[in-house]
């Protein structure tokens, strides 16, 4: 069996964390390549169902990265996101999944190294927690790509049919 590499979905704000991830790349900083980034116009766009949908599709962990507190482009989007992450943690515990699998971070667009640090921190945490019980049984790459595409599709509202069966 291949070594377990946690799959992480990162919801990143366009104004800070997404730019920080870009900067981390330009700075050639090394961080695990198991993170898939989804850009949000603001972390205030995040809803609890995005997080649960990601876990249902088999990611091992989720992090949400928004602007520094007080620095949100839309004033309080990042504060709302933090509350929603708290709610997601509560529901994860009710399901029986470790709430530490999801977390919220704040950083500015200038903090490329911090972005790399967050990915390292989440990777270490999820490695010690072990794989999510909802991880698909198949090999690594394909389901990962599918998952991000599905998550992107669900973010754009394509999967919201009434009475899906």
């Amino acid at each position: 069996m291949s070594k377990y590499e946690p799959l992480i979905l990162a919801f990143c704000c366009h104004y800070c964390a997404y730019a920080a991830a870009d900067l981390a790349g330009s700075m050639r900083l090394q961080y695990p390549n198991n993170v898939r980034v989804l850009k949000l116009p603001c972390t205030g766009k995040l809803e609890v169902n995005f997080i649960l949908a990601a876990f249902e599709r088999g990611v091992d962990g989720v992090f949400v990265a928004g602007c520094l507190e007080g620095g949100c482009h839309y004033l309080e989007g990042n504060l709302r996101a933090r509350r929603r992450v708290e709610r997601a943690k509560e529901i994860l515990s009710e399901i029986g999944l470790e709430p530490e699998r999801v977390d919220m971070f704040n950083l500015s667009s200038a903090q490329g190294p911090r972005f790399a640090e967050i990915v390292n921190e989440m990777t270490a945490r999820l490695t010690s927690l072990g794989p999510s019980p909802f991880r698909p049984a198949r090999g690594a790459e394909e389901p990962v790509r599918e998952m991000t595409e599905q998550a992107e599709a669900s973010l754009s509202g394509e999967n919201h049919d009434c009475c899906q069966s």
Partner: peptide, 24 residues
């Protein structure tokens, strides 16, 4: 939708993953 996701995952963990749960 949130509770639908949560219930599906909880049922799976309880070994009842075969139960179909849909929402509308």
């Amino acid at each position: 939708g949130i509770l639908g996701s949560a219930v599906r995952m909880a049922l799976k963990l309880a070994g009842r993953g075969e139960v179909v749960v849909n929402e509308c």
